[in-house]
Design a protein around this nucleic acid. Sequence first.
DNA 1: CATGAATGAGGGTTCATTCAT
DNA 2: TATGAATGAACCCTCATTCAT
Lengths: 206, 206, 206, 206
Amino acid sequence: MDQSSIASSIKDTTLIEKRRSQIIKASITLFKQKGFHRTTTREIAKASGFSIGTLYEYIRSKEDVLFLVYESINNAVYIHLKRAVKKEETSSQNLINIIDSYFRLMDDMQEEVIILYQEVKSLQEDMKGTVLEKEREMVGLLKNALLSSMPYLFSNKEAELMANNIFVQGHMWCFRRWTLHQNFTLEEYIKMQTHFFEQMIPVKQT
Amino acid sequence: MDQSSIASSIKDTTLIEKRRSQIIKASITLFKQKGFHRTTTREIAKASGFSIGTLYEYIRSKEDVLFLVYESINNAVYIHLKRAVKKEETSSQNLINIIDSYFRLMDDMQEEVIILYQEVKSLQEDMKGTVLEKEREMVGLLKNALLSSMPYLFSNKEAELMANNIFVQGHMWCFRRWTLHQNFTLEEYIKMQTHFFEQMIPVKQT
Amino acid sequence: MDQSSIASSIKDTTLIEKRRSQIIKASITLFKQKGFHRTTTREIAKASGFSIGTLYEYIRSKEDVLFLVYESINNAVYIHLKRAVKKEETSSQNLINIIDSYFRLMDDMQEEVIILYQEVKSLQEDMKGTVLEKEREMVGLLKNALLSSMPYLFSNKEAELMANNIFVQGHMWCFRRWTLHQNFTLEEYIKMQTHFFEQMIPVKQT
Amino acid sequence: MDQSSIASSIKDTTLIEKRRSQIIKASITLFKQKGFHRTTTREIAKASGFSIGTLYEYIRSKEDVLFLVYESINNAVYIHLKRAVKKEETSSQNLINIIDSYFRLMDDMQEEVIILYQEVKSLQEDMKGTVLEKEREMVGLLKNALLSSMPYLFSNKEAELMANNIFVQGHMWCFRRWTLHQNFTLEEYIKMQTHFFEQMIPVKQT
DNA sequence: CATGAATGAGGGTTCATTCAT
DNA sequence: TATGAATGAACCCTCATTCAT
């Protein structure tokens, strides 16, 4: 299930993509400010640059918008992560680079991440499935990076848990910024979390 | 700002407390199921065992209910944590015990924690302040435990960050249960996270 | 299924009855003018003398209003017919009296009858069942009157068909008034239809 | 006022006729299922085999469609009736044949007749005039058949009323089918109604 | 002639809140 | 104190109609 799984009465698929990206952009801005429930469809339409009628040519319900937003955010992170993983290869240093790159992305996407955390309950069950699947894939990327860059150091389960920890520490920079940003700069945060991580790696080679 | 800071037209303070705890209990049940926005005040009144009119004798607005709920959940965690910290003292083993106790509490309060994460945006600004202050205190408890049980191992900043990490890892067991509970039992989760933590502590030997 | 089968959030049943009769009265007036679809719930509320919010305390949906109206109209006819049948007994003259009384009622309820004919399609399936059942009862009343007032003259099936004919001839005075009222007064209409009917009765045996 | 009285921006009249008959066919199917109000213009366009834009090249408003449908149905009945009347001549037996033929047509056009009964209110006033005029003509055909096939038996007024009765008895087979079809086959219905009619004819004097 | 994207008025319904009893 | 009927702003969504291509 991806974007195209949401029905539209418009035939021109290029146009669908264009309009939907307008919708997504507008909605993210609005959801940041007021959350999904407090944002009205009219506001979304207006901020997207067209009428309420037009909005409903590209979605079927307000909940579709939420899914579009989730998918878009998740996708951006996914692509970033995938690229980072591909670039770096097979050494523990490189794992550090991946984390660094991921945390920096999180810093760029703070508000988006907060949306992810706050509106899950409003996602319809079937859409939630798709979204969580994507999350699993992302954690999977980190896990594989862990396993391949430091073989023998982690069991499969340990890698799984560690990947989750890293993934969430990225988010945490966003949803706890009210306290973290008071105490740490991004650079510090990255450095310190990485430091903890390195310490944990038992006896780096002789 | 605490419970009593929410105005009520009722004079009898014992009654206020009783009614409010009915409201909180009912609301938590409802918010678990449908979230704050999808729960109506009528439902809250009914589940609380009295009429909508009576509900509004004990709160001023629906958002007051959310605050009461937040405060109640936060308080429960706070008290538990405080007690755990007090009981254990001054050795690194004891820190492990605190974490263990905290993670078990999180397991008991899964849905409550999820509420905390999902409805922050709906908290009014002034109430949000109170809530976050309490969170800071809780992280403070962990931080102090870290500092006092393993002196010289952590700088102040490191302790601050580590406390946040632990605090969030507890929550994570709740809000990522859709994937974590598939891969780990609670015992495993505690053990492995603790294990990571211990490895991270630089050279405790001798 | 009758009025009381429509759920309401109001507890005072006397009040329900009072408000619903306001709704019915207002709706009939409006439906006469513009039909069910062109009448808005807001108009119904206003004409009923209360707000839209109050309207929805007494019904669950606009279609409930239609059912209430159908039931009310059907009931009025039913009661009238029942009374007419009871009063008259066992002679062919009396059958004529019943018809006379029924046709006069139809003349009084022209617009109501037109509503019945025009909005059936909008009735929900389960409610349609209730409505048609009542119609069957009414035709049954006429049929029994036929059978008992002129025994041996009609077979059961003949009585059934004749009862339907009479029933519809009453309605016809309403829904074909655009032509009938130009050519006939009510008195004439009754007299002539009755006359046809009498002629049809085979050889009133001397 | 007939079909051609509805304006169109298209010049080619053959095309107009072709497209409009597509519209009528599609609309009747849809109106049967969901009624006029619940059918959207988009649905009509789609079922007609062209786009919404094209639909509006051949009509000015949705109500025009209803008129086209009414006119088409009425016309079909009219033509059938006219032909039946022409074929049969000047004997009472022949009147029976006309009725027989008319009732059988009604059986074929059940749903169409139901549309006629249910959507009158939605016809615009001027169009309603045209439609009713056609109905008058049809009743006129029956009336003339009555008068000419059994001269001296009916006064003008009696013939008028009887013609209306017969006309409506045909419709009744449609709009009361939920009860009539349970009790009578079409053959029985025709036979019995005809029988009643014959009995009414005073002593076909030798 | 045909298309279909765009429009926005308006419809049904919900629900937090009030206030007379 | 407790009740629950009343309110109406506001929400989501539909759909007849237009017009540039």
